[in-house]
Design a protein around this nucleic acid. Sequence first.
DNA 1: TTTATTTATTAGGTTAGCCTAATATCTAAT
DNA 2: ATTAGATATTAGGCTAACCTAATAAATAAA
Lengths: 218, 218
Amino acid sequence: MTQTLSEENYLKAIYLIGKQGNDKASATAIAEALKNNPASVIDMIKKLAEKKLIQYDKSTGAKLTDKGLKASLLIVRKHRLWEVFLHDKLGYNWDEVHEMAEQLEHIRHDNLADRLEKFLGFPEYDPHGDPIPKSNGQMPLIPKKTLAEMEPGKTCQVVGVKDTSTAFLQYLQQLNIRLGTKLKVQAKIEFDGSMNLIIDKDTAVSVSKKFIESVLVS
Amino acid sequence: MTQTLSEENYLKAIYLIGKQGNDKASATAIAEALKNNPASVIDMIKKLAEKKLIQYDKSTGAKLTDKGLKASLLIVRKHRLWEVFLHDKLGYNWDEVHEMAEQLEHIRHDNLADRLEKFLGFPEYDPHGDPIPKSNGQMPLIPKKTLAEMEPGKTCQVVGVKDTSTAFLQYLQQLNIRLGTKLKVQAKIEFDGSMNLIIDKDTAVSVSKKFIESVLVS
DNA sequence: TTTATTTATTAGGTTAGCCTAATATCTAAT
DNA sequence: ATTAGATATTAGGCTAACCTAATAAATAAA
């Protein structure tokens, strides 16, 4: 019923790869996420499949079973709750909390997550704005807003689009923007409603009013 | 400079064996503390000695070097700070915090312990009454005596325990004895070293020699 | 379609940290 | 001093989780 630290990391990686809008959690994608060798990933895939935590097929990649999903959500829940603790209670910055939460997410105890959640006042989002799974596995729904509504200086994450035209989707593709991509709003230009963005912390672009009204973020 | 989880456990065990008034941390004593095989202990002793964390000699046992002592104190510090957190902030009982703290003590980050200490209001003792090492390695000193040393007729207050086994802690729980509980010594029974007590001014009980030697009072 | 490239997989190896069983070395009691 | 019993140590093995190098299979490009 319980997983090793390493198994937990794999489960979380598979879960997050799915959430990031990737079509499949391939062996190489998992390897990249965990900075492991693909050969090691294959070993672990076999183990997780044997334990009925995932189903694996070369062409469809790794899919979490109900059991695996439940386990993954618990890890993500713990990770994000600890991030809130570190940020809100200990005063760490949002960029410092991740590394510690990577360790804290593996602390195991029947109801530690629940107690922590209560102590923190039942937060719904972690310091990066990512939703915290409830103890029953439910995810708080993300109130979606368009990129246009974001204030300059804020960072957000792409959660969807309002326009599904090929032209638009291809443009996104070209900009390397997909689900989960982090965007930082640099400035809003009054004149024409356009916006200066930083994509994934490294690429600066300017996008139109029409564009920012078509991207959903959280 | 950093140790593995297992190395940390060994260092802590060696430190605690010393603190418990044992003359030496022999291979078997360490094995017993960690519930490992003596042969495994020898392996690790070699490793720790190579890393200059301990000095080892068959006849004198394992001795922490300055470096090893510093590392041990940090682990104990983290362990006890986390215990305070779990007890004070999350509301866990005495007997529940240990197991979780065993995991939390290994979380590594430059200043996490310091931040946690500050957040907790610079506590000097953990929920069992054990002193929390300061970040410079200093220990708050406490003049402690066991309940066994108390004279009949005197009243005292529980400040800690010498035995942290679950069985003992649960027994205390059952007797409604916790930190700060007031005990009045009614009588000492010469015959078997047991003691008649009044707990919190209202409950009379008889407890064994073993019991009164495991309770610390002031 | 053939080739080049990427992705998946197998085979075999390494290390940490544990184990058992056998042996060696103490210590204490006769 | 001898021997029983405890303690320490060596030798050899095991498993989890990683690795590299080689091979197979799938996909994309020519």
